[in-house]
Write a protein that binds this DNA or RNA. Structure first.
Length: 319
DNA sequence: CTCATAGACCGCCAAT
DNA sequence: AGATTGGCGGTCTATG
């Protein structure tokens, strides 16, 4: 692909600057390390009332809806409010841009603009977990999934809470220009090139483990001894339950199976080691309780979509 | 990549 | 009655 991709980022009153900035960062940042320009990005202002000139952006700001006609990609960084309906002209323009082959990608509450435009009907979508229930009621024909960071269904994309928008934008770069270009973008941002998994796991990790929880002892024991193997039998003994009962209770509390949870925990530790040390992989595998280097590699690739060494490279500062 | 094997997972059902 | 528990065993998954 040699021609650069035409991107339009929408802005409006009550814009969330962070999400707007995420979109700018990925699609409007100058990238002298590449000979080719990947994205030609412009901003379409639908009434945002702050002075964009003061931001000294290097992107062109337009106000005429007709620019959507030539867009390859339209980014919606949040929407004005979940109950605010877009006006008919905008809806019409978005739909006609979509019909012409444009992709439309929303961040966070931006999914509501997609929804009000009828573009989510019959498609997978997601939004910030705070808006999830409201979105499901307003747009019953969409398949909302609150367990993913972003969705991509027939050229309509949506992403969860603010930072997941970055993951989605990188996903777009990856599908346009491949892994290595996307990794380079990620390196510049100093974020992992690929985050998998869902909002659920973030929510879960934020909630502090109550000490009254009978699993508290288990998780503490495991975290302290991550280098050791933990079979179902061992774990069930720690919490004084039969194996069957343990599996049921565990799934109830963690909404995942013991082994999946364990692997995720081990992988988190692996990431920490990769980010902060230059230990050989075998050493890390031993320290994190993977029986072999090969086993670590297999899990790592499934969850992170890159190899351990590629992941490490994003943290060693080369740009 | 493939393979054999061990272990995890989970529906089912009887016991509590 | 209704919910909870734990064992059985078929199937799926991870490992080296």
């Amino acid at each position: 692909m040699n021609k650069s991709i035409e991107v339009i980022i929408l802005i409006y009153p009550n814009l969330c600057l962070f999400e707007f900035a995420c979109a700018l960062e990925v699609f409007a940042q100058k990238r002298p390390e590449f000979e080719q320009t990947h994205y030609r990005t412009r901003v379409l202002n639908l009434g945002a009332n702050f002075n964009l000139d003061s931001l000294s952006l290097e992107v062109k700001v337009l106000t005429n809806l007709s620019v959507l006609n030539n867009a390859d990609l339209i980014v919606i960084p949040g929407w004005q409010g979940t109950t605010i309906r877009p006006d008919a002209k905008l809806v019409k323009q978005l739909n006609s841009a979509y019909k012409k082959g444009a992709r439309i990608a929303s961040i966070c509450s931006g999914a509501f603009l997609l929804g009000y435009s009828g573009l989510l009907n019959g498609r997978k979508a997601t939004t910030h977990w705070r808006y999830y229930n409201q979105a499901k009621i307003l747009f019953p024909e969409a398949e909302f999934d609150e367990t993913v960071l972003y969705t991509d269904d027939k050229r309509i994309l949506s992403s969860a809470g603010s930072a997941a928008g970055l993951d989605m934008c990188l996903h777009i770069v990856r599908s346009d220009y491949g892994h290595s270009v996307a990794n380079s973008y990620a390196r510049r941002l100093v974020i992992p090139p690929f985050r998998d998994g869902g909002q659920a796991q973030f929510i879960q990790n934020i909630v502090p483990e109550s000490s009254g929880n009978s699993f508290a002892k288990l998780t503490q024991t495991i975290e302290k001894n991550l280098h050791k193997p933990f079979s179902i039998e061992t774990m069930a003994e720690i919490v004084h339950m039969s194996e069957r009962h343990f599996q049921r209770r565990f799934k109830e509390h963690f909404s995942t199976t013991p082994n999946k949870w364990l692997t995720k925990l081990r992988l988190q530790k692996v990431c920490e080691f990769l980010e902060t040390t230059n230990f050989r992989l075998k050493t890390i595998a031993d320290a994190c309780g993977f029986g072999s280097e090969e086993s670590l590699r297999r899990h790592f690739r499934i969850h992170m979509k890159v190899s351990p060494m590629e992941y490490r490279a994003t943290f060693t500062g080369e740009a």
